[in-house]
Every structure is written in C-alpha cells, then in structure tokens.
Amino acid sequence: MLEKVDPLKGPITRPVVVRQEEGDEQGGTHRGGGRKSEIYGFFDPEHGIRMRAGITTYTPDRYNPRHRHTDEAVRYYYRGAECYGRDVMEEGDCVYVPEGVYYGPTKTAEKCDHNVRISLHFPGPSGFPTPVWPEVMKAQKEMREKQVGQFEKGLFIWPDGKKQDAFEAVQEYIVGSKLNYPEPRYRSYIIMRHANYSWVPLEGAPGVSVKHLGYFNERGPNIKLMRMESGAETPQGKVDFQQVRLVLEGEVKYDGENYKPVSCMFFPAGAAYSATTAVSETTLLVTQLGMPGSSPLPFCVL
C-alpha cells in the first residue's frame, strides 16, 4: 500500500496516486466564476518536481481572454467541448500548448452546458518554473486584500484602468517583476485528434496497446493514450524521467488499491514503481517528462 504523501508539499520520492475526490478543491479564481477544479499536485522542488495537474469543470459563465504562459501545458478534453478562438476541442481531443505561445480566447462551446478538461502544467525547455496552486491562491488572496486591483472575467484591472491577463498579473506578483516570456519554438498550439490515431500493441505487455499522440522537444512532453484489456498488466520499472498517468475510463489496481476515473498516478524520476493491472477494460492518458540535463526521452517505455 502506498505511503500517504501531501502531493502539494512533498517530499515526493516514491510514486503517488491521487483520486479525484482527494484533490485540492478550488472554485472561482483569478479567472472569475464558472469553474470548479480538483488539483492533484505535484510540488517538491528539492527533488525537481514542479508541476500542476488537475481536472476542471467549466460552464458558459467562464471566459478566458487570449493569453500565453511561461510554462507548458497538456490538456485532454474529457467531457463536452471547448472553443479556442475558432478551433473547437471535442471530447477525446488532446492539446499541447508550448511555452510562450498565445491561445484563446477560450470558453465552453455553445452546444454544451459545461465541459470538463484535464490539465497538466510543467516547465518547458526554458526552465521557467510552473507556479503551483498554493502559490497562486495565496497571491490572489493578497492582491484582493491589498486592493492592488480588481479581477474581472479573466482580466486584472489596475486602478488606472489598465487591463492585464489575470494569471499574468498573479504570476508577476509572485515573482515580483515583469514576466520575460520565452521565445516560442512553435507558431501555435498543437491539437491531437485521438480518433484519427491507430492503436499499436505494446511490446512485452499482452493486452496493452498505445496511441502515440505526440513527442515534443528534447525532454518531452511524450504523450500517449494507453488501453488495457481486463487483467492486462504494465510491468514494474524504474526510469530517469517523470510520468503522469491519468485513469480516464475503467479501473486499475496499483500496490493493492483500486483506482477509478479520474485518478492521477505520478511516478517520480528514479523511483521504482510497481506493475499496474487493469481490473476492467481501461484507458489511461500518459505524459512523460525528462529531467533537466538528462538524455532525450525514449519513444515508448511504459
């Protein structure tokens, strides 16, 4: 059985699995209302872990203006649909948002009364650190208490009337200076329509198949969907990169405990992890990230 660890404080030196109902629940934030999130983690900078994984339900009340980030994101559209400007992300689509790339505005698609999105934020090739949720919430609270300005519909409005992206304003408050965005490697975000990919058998793991959605940069993200037949198993292992596995459908057993959707499994680099067994036919979203100074990620090690 896994030892209980606070995934937002650490230390994280062994695998951590967080069920959706165990996540840190958050409601309206700097983006305003129309959202409810469960934040899984994971934060332990001493061991090179600084990412933000979570699942969020949005309603049409929420609106995000066009903006960009200093870090990167992988997003999976779990239920419903969401608009990125003219692009519509349908259920099952996956999006990679590279550092420094503008996107949006984003909102729940008109035909939906809500949409559910799974997100993973992490440092990109430039190494700019990802703000973790306790930092964001603390900064937002202080900005309101000090009456620095006003949060309104995804924007931060300064006393002189100047408008700024709300998350950018929060992040600048955290770092204490104006943000210097990395020069983007990509012209735009990348949409992966998983329905157009083929399942490929995973060598050495009977009953397991993979959709190779995308492999980016020297250290990832390396993004895959993994399908497991009931009773199938992925082997135990120990690798020099970080892995996040999200249970999308079905149920798995790991270290004697069962996990249903949407549970989040985090395997730190260099930590031994146990075999994962499918209790029923199961689909997982897998994202792998290399450590700074490490060799390029292998294409397919699960």
Rank of each mutant, 00 (worst) to 15 (best):
Y181N: 05
V208T: 08
T108G: 04
Y103I: 00
F167C: 02
T130W: 02
A169D: 04
E203A: 14
A139H: 00
G154K: 06
Y189R: 13
K111W: 12
Q164I: 09
E183A: 12
I190E: 08
G154S: 08
N180S: 14
F128E: 09
A169F: 06
R193I: 02
W199N: 09
M137V: 12
N180K: 15
K146Q: 13
R117V: 14
E110C: 04
H121R: 06
M192C: 06
G207K: 07
T130Y: 03
P105I: 11
K141M: 09
F156P: 01
T130N: 15
F156Q: 03
H194N: 06
F128Y: 11
Q150A: 13
E145P: 04
D113Q: 13
S209G: 05
E142M: 06
V175Q: 09
N196W: 08
D113W: 11
M192G: 00
L202P: 00
K162Y: 06
D160C: 01
T108W: 00
E172H: 09
P206C: 13
F156H: 04
W158R: 15
V208Q: 09
V132D: 05
F156W: 05
G104A: 09
A195N: 10
Y186V: 04
F128S: 07
K153L: 02
Y103K: 06
P125A: 11
F151A: 04
P182R: 02
W133S: 03
L179R: 07
R193M: 06
V200A: 06
E135T: 07
P134T: 11
R193A: 05
A169Y: 06
K138Q: 14
Q171V: 03
Y197I: 07
R144K: 13
